[in-house]
């Protein structure tokens, strides 16, 4: 008999499947990692009547699914899911567990890590395998100006939560097949100590910023609410949307909805115009998928300028105004 393959597990966070693709994104990254350490990619799914998601995860690259399907699991439950994950991980000893940094995932992963007595890196913006075969967990540090590479050398599994939008899902392929391992619900499952009294969908917002082909993003360097407001005119001319950094949102120059970054939205425009933004990693981690970046900053050494394709050293507001004029002239 051959030795059992090591597992890279991805928590199957299927709630809000269509808005939240983080599980698929992690399956895709897990596949790359698995190739480097000869491991297999597994999804772990808890729920009731969840065949549809099991099928999706296989179509998106999972080789094996650990599935507990039971009416008791019809709604997400922190305590029960934690218990199930702990038991399964103790039994199967995965090498790595990846969890999407959704609200649920960010509460679930630390509990699982605690029970398994292992480490956990929060909100990773990159994952890789180092020469020793350890999971390299890249996380923002020092106020977002630097990236720290974190490893869990001794304890297992190695665990990380990852922000949605960092990795690209692989397109679904319904020809793919996978093994489904049915895991029964334990017999004496304790009653949840937290009771869900009521749950309703909070109103859906349109996801325009996330999908926009052109995003015009403004930061503190614009100097005032009035100057920031000009970005809307520019965005309109470009058929794009306006994004903002955190200081701008805190100063009420823009709605919280417009926040781009770790605490806000991920964007993937073809063109990103960035005005007066220093380029802290908490902001730029959400811009990794921008195809072409034009940054304007008085400081040529700002991090945003270093990662731009075109770095314009000038006053942000003046360039914004000149762009508006020039575009009006050119668009007829």
């Amino acid at each position: 008999m051959t030795a059992k393959k090591r597992g890279i597990w991805v928590f199957g966070d299927y709630r809000n499947y269509f808005q939240n693709r983080v599980t698929l994104q992690l399956l895709s990254r897990a596949k790359d990692l698995a190739a480097k350490i000869d491991a297999e990619v597994c999804a772990v799914v808890f729920g009731n009547k969840v065949d549809e998601w099991v099928g999706e995860y296989i179509a998106h690259g999972a080789e094996k699914i650990y599935l507990t399907d039971h009416p008791r699991l019809a709604v997400y439950s922190m305590e029960t899911y934690t218990l199930l994950m702990e038991r399964l991980a103790r039994h199967e000893r995965p090498e790595i567990i990846l969890v999407g940094a959704t609200a649920f995932g960010r509460e679930f992963a630390p509990r699982v890590a605690k029970r398994l007595g292992t480490g956990l890196t929060a909100d990773c913006i990159g994952l890789d395998i180092d020469q020793e075969g350890l999971l390299l967990q890249m996380a923002p540090s020092f106020g977002g100006t630097l990236v720290a590479e974190i490893v869990t050398p001794e304890r297992r599994p190695q665990m990380a939560t990852v922000r949605p939008g960092i990795f690209q899902e692989i397109p679904h392929d319904y020809i793919r097949t996978g093994e489904v391992v049915k895991v029964p619900l334990p017999e004496h499952l304790p009653v949840d100590r937290v009771r869900l009294v009521r749950s309703e969908r909070s109103p859906q917002r349109e996801q325009k910023l996330e999908d926009a082909k052109v995003v015009v993003c403004g930061g503190r360097g614009l100097g005032s609410k009035k100057k920031f407001a000009k970005l809307f005119e520019l965005a309109e001319l470009l058929g794009g949307e306006v994004g903002a950094t955190r200081p701008v949102v805190y100063a009420d120059w823009a709605e919280h909805d417009a926040l781009v970054g770790q605490a806000g939205k991920q964007i993937r425009p073809q063109i990103l115009l960035s005005f007066g933004i220093s380029g802290a990693i908490q902001h730029t981690a959400a811009c990794n998928d921008a195809k072409f970046i034009i940054a304007v900053n008085k400081n040529p050494n700002a991090a945003m300028m270093k990662r731009a394709d075109v770095a314009i050293v000038a006053d942000a507001s003046q360039i914004c105004n000149s762009l508006i004029q020039e575009l009006k002239r050119r668009i007829r």
Binding site: G117, T118, G119, L120, T121, D130, L136, Q137, S141, F142, T145, L146, V147, A148, E149, I150, V151, T152, P153, E154, R155, G279, I281, T284, A303, K306, R307
Partner: peptide
């Protein structure tokens, strides 16, 4: 602590 910082770098070096 189970986690160790291996390395810290600037993400923009060399573009």
């Amino acid at each position: 602590s189970a986690t160790k910082i291996r390395n810290v770098y600037s993400p923009t070096a060399g573009k």
